[in-house]
């Protein structure tokens, strides 16, 4: 069971982190708190904050793209003014100039994801002096043998980086 106090404290943390990074939580407090509850439920269930509006597999390596904030948040904010769940919204939505509604699912289907995993595994490594790593959450790039433990820009964990070059 998730308590109201737990929702409060996670809500406040997410709100603070969002503001620090120039993001906004949805100002519809009841809706947003319900999503925060979903994130906490998933954290208990899977051990990580899987997106509340998508079905997680429970295998972390297959769910990395939907650990909140997911890989799709920024492109969806850009194109639709809200993330898929509408937990995060654009400044226009906060200002009441537009509203957050349901948007198309950007995450590839299960079949497409499986195909992409197989393809990724087949791809050979390049010939650069260092590999270039890309943070899938914020796009930060770095050329090092390994990605940083924590993204210096958005604080996403190391496992959210993908090989870029």
């Amino acid at each position: 069971m998730i308590t109201e106090a737990e929702i409060d404290s996670r809500y406040q943390r997410l709100d603070r982190e969002a503001r620090q990074g120039g993001y906004n939580l949805n100002p519809d407090i009841a809706f947003t708190r319900n999503l925060v509850r979903g994130l906490l439920v998933n954290e208990q269930r899977y051990g990580y904050m899987a997106c509340p509006c998508r079905i997680a597999s429970g295998k972390k390596e297959e769910d990395l793209d939907i650990i909140c904030p997911c890989d799709y948040r920024d492109p969806d904010l850009n194109d639709y003014g809200a993330c898929y769940c509408a937990l995060y919204v654009s400044g226009d939505v906060v200002a009441g100039k537009s509203t957050a509604g349901p948007i198309p699912e950007r995450r590839p289907s299960r079949a497409e994801r499986k195909e992409a995993r197989l393809k990724g595994a087949r791809e050979a490594l390049g010939t650069l002096a260092y590999p270039v790593w890309r943070c899938r959450v914020c796009g930060y790039l770095c050329a090092m043998n390994n990605p940083p433990l924590v993204c210096p820009i958005c604080k996403a964990k190391q496992d959210r980086f993908e090989r870029f070059l």
């Binding site: 809706f31 319900n34 999503l35 509850r37 979903g38 994130l39 439920v41 998933n42 509340p52 509006c53 998508r54 079905i55 997680a56 769940c85 509408a86 937990l87 349901p102």
Partner: peptide
């Protein structure tokens, strides 16, 4: 999904409209 905001809104809408239906929380 039991955790999803839009799912909750859809469920509430069906209820408000008084439409006979069945639902399942897949998660």
């Amino acid at each position: 999904l039991s955790t999803c905001g839009w799912c909750g809104k859809t469920k509430d809408l069906l209820k408000e409209m008084g439409v006979e239906h069945s639902y399942v929380y897949v998660d």
